[in-house]
């Protein structure tokens, strides 16, 4: 049987540098564009969806 993780935050991408995001792999981006770019790559690679937390943090969630 195939087992996979779902409904889990696989990674976070952020441009804030104050280290509020912990507990998951965090990717720091230099700019908004880079954050989007990293999010796209991560969501494609992980077959997951990028969600906007609205505070400069994107989370990559597997559904």
């Amino acid at each position: 049987m195939e087992v996979s993780i779902t409904k889990a935050i696989l990674a976070a991408v952020t441009i804030t540098r104050d280290e509020r995001v912990t507990g998951v792999p965090v990717f720091y981006a230099e700019s908004e564009e880079e954050m989007v770019e990293i999010s796209v790559i991560l969501s494609r690679v992980l077959e997951a969806v990028a969600h906007d937390m609205g505070n400069g943090v994107y989370i990559i969630v597997k559904h």
């Binding site: 989007v36 796209v40 969501s43 990028a50």
Partner: peptide, 20 residues
């Protein structure tokens, strides 16, 4: 509405990427 996708008044999901 922001990152949230709606159909009429029904919230569907949050989508982060502008490309999406």
């Amino acid at each position: 509405e922001g990152a949230n996708l709606f159909v009429d008044d029904i919230h569907i999901m949050n989508l982060g990427l502008k490309e999406t």
